[in-house]
Simulated assay, not measured.
Amino acid sequence: MTNPVFLNNVSHHDLKVIPSYSAELGDNVASVLAFPTEFVELQKEYPILIRKNSETKTFQATALLGFNKEENLYLDPTCRSGWAANYIPAAIAKGPFLIGMQSQDEGSSDAPVVHIDLDHPKVSEQDGYPLFLEHGGTSPYLERITSVLKVIHEGIATQDVMFSAFSELGLIEPVAIDIDLNNGEKRQLVGNYTINEEKLASLSGDKLEQLSKRGFLPLAYAVIASMTNIRKLIEIKNGRER
Rank of each mutant, 00 (worst) to 15 (best):
H115E: 10
Q210W: 11
Y141P: 07
I224S: 02
D105A: 13
A34W: 07
L42G: 00
P112D: 14
V17M: 08
F35M: 06
M227T: 08
V10R: 14
S22D: 14
E45M: 10
P4C: 09
L189G: 02
E185I: 07
G107A: 09
R187P: 02
P47Q: 12
E106H: 07
F163Q: 07
L118P: 06
D119K: 14
G191I: 08
A90W: 11
I156Y: 06
K237L: 03
Y87A: 04
G215E: 11
I230F: 03
Y74D: 07
V148A: 10
K199G: 05
N196K: 06
D27N: 13
D14E: 13
R231V: 02
V223D: 02
G155M: 03
F35S: 01
V17K: 04
P4S: 13
S139A: 09
L65P: 00
V161L: 14
F163L: 07
S81Y: 11
V17A: 04
E45T: 12
N238Y: 13
D180M: 03
E41P: 04
E70T: 12
K186Y: 06
E235C: 11
E38N: 05
N68S: 10
A222F: 05
S20Y: 15
L171V: 02
E173H: 03
F163D: 11
A111E: 12
S202K: 15
E41K: 12
A111D: 07
Y221Q: 15
Y221L: 11
S212L: 15
F166C: 03
Q104Y: 13
Y129I: 02
K122M: 07
Q159F: 08
E209I: 00
Y141V: 08
G136L: 09
